[in-house]
Design a protein around this nucleic acid. Sequence first.
DNA 1: GAGTTTGAAACT
DNA 2: CAGTTTCAAACTC
Length: 601
Amino acid sequence: MEQREGGDVPPKNPQQSEGSSTEAADFPARKLVRQLDFTGLSGGVSTVEQPQSVKSIQPPPLPPQSMKPPHLQPPPMLFMTMQQPTQPTVPPTHPSVRPIVKPESPKARPRQNVNEVKDNTPKKQKQCNCKHSRCLKLYCECFASGIYCDGCNCVNCHNNVENEGPRREAVEATLERNPNAFRPKIASSPHGARDSRVLSKEEAGEVLVSAKHNKGCHCKKSGCLKKYCECFQANILCSENCKCMDCKNYEGSEERQALFHGDHANNMVFIQQAANAAITGAIGSSGYGSPPLSKKRKGQELFFGSTVKDPAHRLAQLQQANQIKASVPSSSLSSTPGARSGNTSALGPSKFTYRSLLADIIQPQDLKELCSVLVVYSGEAAKMLAEERNAAEKRAEDSRETSAASSTQDKSQSEKQSVAQKSLTNDPLSENQTQKTKPDESSSAGADVSNSRPMSPSTLALMCDEQDTMFNNAASSNGLEAHNNVSSQVPHEQRLNEAYAEQERIVLTKFRDCLNRLITLGEIKETKYSSLAQSESSGNEKDPTSNGASNARSETRNQQFISNGITAVPPQRAVAAAAVNNVRITKPPENGDVRTKTERE
DNA sequence: GAGTTTGAAACT
DNA sequence: CAGTTTCAAACTC
């Protein structure tokens, strides 16, 4: 009893680090361990990938047929994964192809992360320290991750090639107990995209990976704010799946906020998370915005029953309670995810959020301004095009005079010309499809662009590179036509479209440039964040006594950096101005200073 | 690095 | 399924 399975296995060699089981000490293949990939990503549940870790190649530890209970049949995903690794490039069975790193199970990425953050270089795979489980239980992180122990500090390790037999049995047993045992615990949230507009202030700066724990945690004392908590460790918020008590790992939790914003170590975590989230593409994710209600309540009632001695705890619970009240106006204990998520709109439909690096850079007003700029540019483009076309037409007519063009051609030509000019130079009223710009936008732009036709209807809807390319192509061919093929019988509409296309091409090109600059700014910001946090982190280590002060300083500095490094010239303005180049924006600079630097005239 | 705490996993 | 024990990671000192 006390020594469950294997307990009787004599520790052959307490010192079997570097991989291993003693019996394998001189096994050449030792370093060439094959590994299992239980982290199968696809399938029913998608997971939060850890992009920085190279997924290892996984040999099937078990022949599919040996894997078990039909009734408990694990989802095909697992089998698939085991039989055919998701990474097609890697030969599953070839021992010589040793995967670089252990695939990090969503759960197991503890100290390693810290190392990574410190060094900026991915560290060696995590090493377990199992002593009594022979690394054949889920206690063992390696085993749980579906990989062989390699270079671990475990004792009496059986999680290796030499013990494939026992290992296989263990896998079977584990699967029998829990068919999902080797599946990722963290699944990306199935819920819809989150509306970034409802990002609450308090989550500013936080990055919540778009995922949730499949089983949920059961924490009691850690508040789900320590790595004991699987959710926290996986950098996700607790969900309705959790049965934790006194949970503070929910969106809006002050403790959690403090954790993220409070100290530098966590700043680093935050940065790492931000990077992860960005890489993972955890953008606009979803989830739940409030603490897992039903269970939390249970926990709260329990604690509110006065079992809580720690005042801080009590406060936390009160806060949490308020949170709940806020998000659940009715007193009903909606324990269903749907109900809860529905009630959490105040906090946002999702608990998983990604905050863009540009979040501080782009303000609503700036978008408006950008629109104005585009409109202005559209007008400029229209004028320019009209002039060009006029010139072209003139040249064409000159040459045509000598070739005795037909009267119909002349007629159509002149019509075309007038249409083109009309469409290019303005008169929005004459165009049914004239976009219905927002009043403020049109008014702001109107002052300068009164003379130009607003962008064609689709312009604003086509703002991306792909379309730009499309337009480039279209426009280039159209341009050719316009300039060279003067005798073509182009229908008016087509001609009109050409004009639109050309105009849009110009505007979109500028807009693309604009976006590119924006991206650059975001990258700069990212870089600065990283370096700042790193320097602060190191500085903090040197001066641990000044934590509070330096924290405050750091926050200030963060903001400064945001405003200095990035937005000293308010980026959006700089970008807009840059995009506009020669076009003057009449809107007075709010700061009066820097902005004018980027504006011409 | 040793000892403690914690919560998942294993077991009853 | 609930309660208990075991286990190894996380944490503290």
